[in-house]
Design a protein around this nucleic acid. Structure first.
Length: 112
DNA sequence: AGACTGACATAAA
DNA sequence: GTTTATGCCAGTC
């Protein structure tokens, strides 16, 4: 996570609604084209321990304009319902793909 | 309040 | 390489 982004992602300010969802959105927006992050990576960046929450948020509050396709499972596979489109988008961005899975070792965003 | 759920992760078989 | 079992935890009902 870039330092300049932390100030935006950090805010656990309001006692009423820190909202993990907003932090997820900001983090996902920062992923550069051609790179990817796992759900667990995003969870770690925004300060929650659970990757499942990230998936749930994208599933329910995702909006267009958000590069959701740059987030996938840690082993490089993606959820069945979105697999085809996701792989297509990633391939178009030049992400290394072997068969039906992304090569996380080289595609994973290092935070820079 | 309590049970259920899930675009997940990881270890073990 | 694969499949199966367990843990996970915030949101939703």
């Amino acid at each position: 996570m870039p330092a300049e982004a932390m100030s935006v992602v950090q805010p656990a300010r309001s006692s009423t609604e820190p909202s993990l969802a907003e932090r997820v959105f900001v983090c996902v927006e920062l992923i550069p084209s051609g790179s990817v992050l796992s759900y667990g990576d995003v969870a770690e960046y925004i300060g929650t321990g659970s990757a499942r929450i990230v998936g749930r948020i994208l599933a329910t509050e995702g909006y267009d304009g958000l590069p959701w396709h740059r987030v996938l499972r840690a082993d490089g596979t993606c959820a069945e319902h979105i697999r085809a489109e996701q792989l297509g988008l990633l391939r178009a961005e030049g992400v290394p793909i072997r068969g039906d899975r992304v090569q996380m070792s080289t595609a994973r965003w290092d935070g820079r």
